[in-house]
Amino acid sequence: MTNPHTSALSEAGVSIWLDDLSRRRLESGELAELVETLNVVGVTTNPTIFANAIGGGDGYGERLADAASRGLDVDAAIVELTTADVADACDLLAGVYAATEGRDGRVSIEVEPGLARDTAGTAEQARQLWARVDRPNAMIKIPATVEGLDAITETIAAGISVNVTLIFSLERYRQVINAYLAGLERARAAGIDLSTIHSVASFFVSRVDSEVDRRLREIGTPEALALTGQAGIANARLAYEVFEQSFDTERARFLIGLGANPQRPLWASTGVKDPALVDTAYVTGLIAPNTVNTMPEATLQAFADHGHVPGDTVTGAYLESNQVLNAIDALGVDYAEVTELLEQEGLQKFDASWSELLGTVEHALREAR
């Protein structure tokens, strides 16, 4: 039986994806159980998730020993380990993928963070990862840097499904949607069936609150403190308005009429970092049709335990959300500065995780040899 709270969320149009993957989750049956009981219909990964999984060692010993015996270097070993996990998760979710006609049952794997400022390198590695995983329900994650925009277009144009990650600002989100539509137009010109291409746009939530709230607390006035904990959800709700507007244009409607899929908003970074907020705040506050919420397991379990689905909590809140961001701006918190900083920090965190992963695997290969 499925959980009533997660079932209600799914029925409200929110696809629940788990923001975690490991060999242990696959082999223990944990992931299968979450699919069966908590309505999980997708999985996202990133360099930090793999650094934690492989660094923990659980389930990877034999695979690392085998990689060492075959003389694989650290880069090749990492590709082998991570793509194997993603391929197996894709197989586990194949039934969901079929039942939803490709909408869900998706598993994302990210290009190396060091390529985030390299358009050609990102597009090339996206093709390599897609071929290596070799599952139609995989998604390649590409960061929404300026350099990543053309790589998104090129990857979509090749018929590869993409999860665009690290989106913080509304302006960058508009650019991401344009990159997706441009890719669909090129795919159509190449004779690719547009219905086979899917994409999500990962809009980050809690990190916006963390940085904005830090600045509001520095200001310290009652007006500033009253606005803490509101920026992340307001920003995401306005992103949904951008989604509605952008996929109701003549350009988008034409492509959808040819079988293309709208690029759904995905709420990322939905684990609550501020103990003053309810632990399900970034789920209950962002319920709307045609969205994805990718949750760390702690957030998923919290929602399963005491989550609430009051209905659509997004589309009626655009005016209020604009007022929140305008009030924050009036206090001197620069939106563009915040979102640019968050993109840089996001890339730095993934770089650090990737370096940690390289060191862990290199040490394990040496030990095995």
Rank of each mutant, 00 (worst) to 15 (best):
S353T: 15
T196H: 02
A99H: 13
C90V: 10
Q323W: 05
N3V: 15
T196P: 03
D118Q: 02
S269W: 03
R24N: 10
G359L: 05
E362W: 08
L227E: 06
T196I: 01
R106L: 07
V200P: 01
L170K: 14
T82A: 06
D334G: 07
L238W: 10
A179S: 10
P222G: 05
V35I: 06
V200M: 02
V14F: 09
T45A: 03
T280K: 04
A276F: 12
Q344M: 13
I197V: 01
R251G: 07
E185T: 03
Y335L: 10
R207S: 13
V242P: 11
D248G: 08
N290K: 13
V324I: 09
N39M: 03
G114K: 04
V86F: 03
E343F: 15
Q175S: 15
L258D: 15
T360C: 10
N46K: 05
D58L: 01
D334S: 11
Y173Q: 14
D91C: 11
E110Q: 13
A288H: 10
A352I: 14
A84Y: 06
A120H: 09
I109S: 09
E367M: 14
Q230C: 13
V278P: 13
V162Y: 06
P296I: 00
A126V: 00
D104T: 15
Q348V: 12
S15V: 12
D88M: 11
S195Q: 02
N163K: 14
E124G: 12
R264H: 08
F247V: 02
A138K: 01
A94C: 13
T82L: 06
Q344T: 15
A231M: 08
L149A: 02
N178M: 14
L166W: 05
D118T: 04
G307W: 02
Q230K: 15
G159M: 11
F243S: 04
A201F: 03
R369M: 10
E250L: 10
L115W: 01
A84N: 09
G13D: 13
A84F: 08
D213I: 08
D213N: 12
D19I: 07
G55Q: 00
F254K: 15
L64R: 05
W267Q: 04
Y318K: 01
R264M: 09
F204H: 05
D104P: 06
D248Q: 11
A239M: 13
G57E: 05
P296L: 00
T313I: 00
L194R: 06
T6K: 04
T280W: 08
G271K: 02
R237N: 07
R63G: 09
Y173S: 08
D193A: 03
V314A: 03
M1T: 15
W17C: 10
L149M: 03
V111E: 04
G57L: 02
G59Q: 03
V200Q: 04
L26C: 04
A123C: 04
H198Q: 13
P265L: 06
H306E: 12
F243L: 01
L115M: 00
I109V: 15
E241L: 11
S202I: 06
R214H: 11
I167D: 13
I16S: 07
P289A: 12
Y335C: 07
R106D: 06
F303T: 04
P4M: 12
P4Q: 14
L341H: 11
T48F: 11
R23D: 05
L286Q: 05
P47V: 06
A131R: 05
A190Q: 08
